[in-house]
């Protein structure tokens, strides 16, 4: 059985607080910037959201899904596959954008 000793109720509560705070931060920033700073660069805002979401994902995986307490080999073999998504995302977004450009330039 895996090292269940790792996680405690304190850690669970701490994670809950972190996730809540990050979510509220996201919503807050979205609302404030949407309402008061419409000229704020969209890409920067989106980057901010992406980073915060990845942070949330990290906490859910590490604490709730117990990954922090598994052996390194196990974490490696399970999560390494996700690396493949990086190029998938980049290539597809680039493609999507190029359809837009194609349609407006040659359509």
């Amino acid at each position: 059985m895996s090292a269940e000793g790792g996680i405690t109720k304190q850690i669970i509560m701490k994670t809950l607080v972190i996730l809540s705070v990050v979510t509220i931060l996201e919503i807050g920033v979205a609302l404030i910037i949407g309402a008061y700073f419409p000229t704020f660069p969209k890409w920067l805002l989106n980057l901010f959201f992406v980073v915060l979401s990845l942070l949330k994902a990290f906490y859910i995986t590490a604490e709730f899904m117990h990954m922090k307490y598994e052996t390194k080999g196990f974490v490696f073999w399970t999560l390494i596959g996700l690396v493949l998504l990086v190029w998938f995302i980049i290539a597809m977004l680039y493609e999507g954008n190029s359809w837009l450009v194609n349609n407006s330039t040659w359509g």
Binding site: L84, W87, F88, A91, Y94, E95, S98, N102
Partner: peptide, 20 residues
């Protein structure tokens, strides 16, 4: 590893962006 990042070579003539 490579098998996952080369898929579009089946699509060179499909209107794929030439840079990609």
């Amino acid at each position: 590893f490579l098998s996952f990042i080369v898929w579009a070579h089946h699509m060179f003539m499909s209107g794929l962006n030439p840079f990609i």
